[in-house]
Design a protein around this nucleic acid. Sequence first.
DNA 1: GCCATTGTTCAGCAAAATTTGAACTAAGAA
DNA 2: TTCTTAGTTCAAATTTTGCTGAACAATGGC
Lengths: 110, 110
Amino acid sequence: MLHPDPGQIELPLVLAALSDPTRLSIIRQLAEDGESMCRRLDFASKSNLSYHFAKLREAGITRTRIEGTARYISLRRDDLDARFPGLLDSVITAAAAYPRIMEAEPVNGK
Amino acid sequence: MLHPDPGQIELPLVLAALSDPTRLSIIRQLAEDGESMCRRLDFASKSNLSYHFAKLREAGITRTRIEGTARYISLRRDDLDARFPGLLDSVITAAAAYPRIMEAEPVNGK
DNA sequence: GCCATTGTTCAGCAAAATTTGAACTAAGAA
DNA sequence: TTCTTAGTTCAAATTTTGCTGAACAATGGC
């Protein structure tokens, strides 16, 4: 379970991670609700979500915490703001102004 | 020579366009120098640059103007700021704070 | 122990992105 | 006209992404 150090967070990776509609939806939800259980973020199939969570985590955008059998995900706001001031906020604002992303047809793994 | 209307500029496309180191270098140079001749932006081979210019243009990040045999490229700051406030500035600032991107080995098409 | 829940990991695949080199177009100078 | 400059476009090759389904691991309840 990799979490890059704050100083290792790289801009191209962060932007690439944010450029996917599914991941933007996740980010947006996390920005609204704060730390969330993975289960709540059902924007795709289970294994596909796991893939997107890994992308976000490895880019340094989210932090994952394990508690019992559940995972909790949250934004690394402080780390991101310190390294790239204003970036996360502007993306979240942009995503909110943007026509609703990927919630028309939630593809639940079941 | 496509230039999307301001209202057609889409967040995922913009972020994807910005997530490439070569294109970040171009953006950075444009932010420093303002409108520039394509020729000055030699961060890759000619045909590869043409590809990156098209990506930036189609994402709505840059505008290309033809004058004689030369092309002039500039940032669509106003359009981007109107649609996604603060985004471009934070990316440019982040790119500047970031260790120098792709200038170690300029690959000139000649 | 068995079972359900929660999520990861893997192999495989299709689609998209990136890069290269060659051919091409257009404008201007000689 | 011929040549050079500036840049696009195309086909082909490679790499990277995104997605799926199946198998797997770990926790907690019965």
